[in-house]
Design a protein around this nucleic acid. Structure first.
Lengths: 231, 231
DNA sequence: ACCTGAACACCGTTCAAGT
DNA sequence: ACCTGAACACCGTTCAAGT
């Protein structure tokens, strides 16, 4: 009886699969949620606002996604899917460099992501694939499994640590010099002599105040190279 | 008129400073908030619950602290105040090591802190003092200001990155072997061959699966030592 | 199968009123 | 000076009811 009514209204039998694409899908939720987070900031992303942006009420989202946490996991998986996968057999340092820069780019393109990824153990398919390929590249290059694990930890701590600081820093790198000049009087020379002097150097243009992502990365890759050679 | 009434009730003139200690102070708020966060988890810390724990209503907290954000800054300042301050003139590597281990200890004792500290630019007095002493120690040891800045960034990325992962990891290190054996069937060998093999090694006890905090730290200190020497 | 309204159990914060 | 009750503007999520 209910089935007949449903069929009359929607033109589709309940027992046969849907023919036309459903209006809402998990993929559409994730895409719109990422759009919202990127354009309006992560704190503006609520289930209610996401639903509104999709022209629907909040409760209907729960037909496509278990809860907000599951939605966040799907969003993070989408970001991690953009990490470039290390190849086996070539120079492992080049592969790690390529992966690191692609991660940095993906995290800068989705500025809300790094802060979540560093603290959350999101085991989506993309994370597993990245883990496997990264360990695989290092092991193929001659690392033991323990060494590969430790190496990946050192590399990833730098990538995530650096990027989280970068996206949360309140002043734009291009205005460091002006900012240093402006805040100089607020850093008392007698209590904070070295920070004061650092600000002087930045204000005078002797140093741009910008820490390069590559610095820490090369420091670690170089150390790892030396470590494996002598293991 | 109001003043007289106040004096009658409280036995203290409004124009003279209070004699007996006030029942609630910012220090007491911060101490109880840290106790709550450490014992019940950070997500259980709300202004309403904190007030309840202090035997008071939520709104009265705003007499002692501007808002929740200001309270968090005060809590974080308390954690950073426990970082050991590098001394000038000695071996800079020893001073950095001592500082790093004290940070690691402070962050493990307050497991909610690292996730906040890494993303938030909390400029409390303790952060300024730590910054100044760390840069000061490196500059005194022969680093330029730019080098000291880059070095501190590399060191701190490791400390925070490592510890955030450590406190958020869902399984206890002492149970890695059992966990690896348990989850092994869920890591398909054909799609994730290297993760599978890593789990095999941990399950068989060939490798404990634990990444040491010291590994990345020494890797970086060693690299820095080489870098300054050749600068 | 999917969407909805009403409701529940929370949040942080403001403001006028109390003592 | 400090604390309070009531209220505002939000949250995530459940559940029974609608089509």
């Amino acid at each position: 009886m209910f089935d007949v009514f449903h069929e009359y209204i929607y033109g589709v039998s309940m027992s046969t699969p849907r023919q036309k694409p459903r209006s809402l899908t998990p993929e559409k939720l994730v895409a719109k949620a990422m759009e919202l987070a990127n354009e309006s900031g992560f704190e503006a992303l609520s289930m209610r606002k996401l639903a509104h942006a999709l022209g629907v009420t909040a409760m209907s989202l729960y037909n496509h996604v278990a809860n907000k946490d599951a939605l966040l996991d799907l969003m993070l998986n989408e970001v991690v899917a953009r990490y470039e996968t290390p190849k086996f057999g070539g120079e492992w340092q080049d592969e790690m460099r390529r992966r690191a820069h692609s991660m940095h780019r993906a995290l800068l393109a989705n500025r809300w992501a790094s802060t979540l990824l560093i603290s959350r153990i999101a085991i989506g398919e993309a994370v597993l694939r990245d883990n496997d390929a990264t360990v695989g590249c290092l092991v193929t290059a001659g690392f033991t499994y323990a060494q590969a694990d430790w190496a990946r930890n050192a590399i990833d701590n730098h990538i995530y640590g650096f990027t989280v600081q970068e996206v949360n820093y309140p002043v734009d790198p291009s205005t460091y010099q002006a900012a240093a000049a402006q805040y100089l009087p607020m850093i008392p020379q007698d209590t904070y002599p070295f920070m004061h002097q650092a600000a002087v150097q930045i204000a005078e243009g002797k140093y741009d105040g910008i820490v390069q992502f590559e610095f820490g990365l090369e420091l670690i890759l170089d150390g790892l190279n030396r470590w494996v050679g002598t293991a």
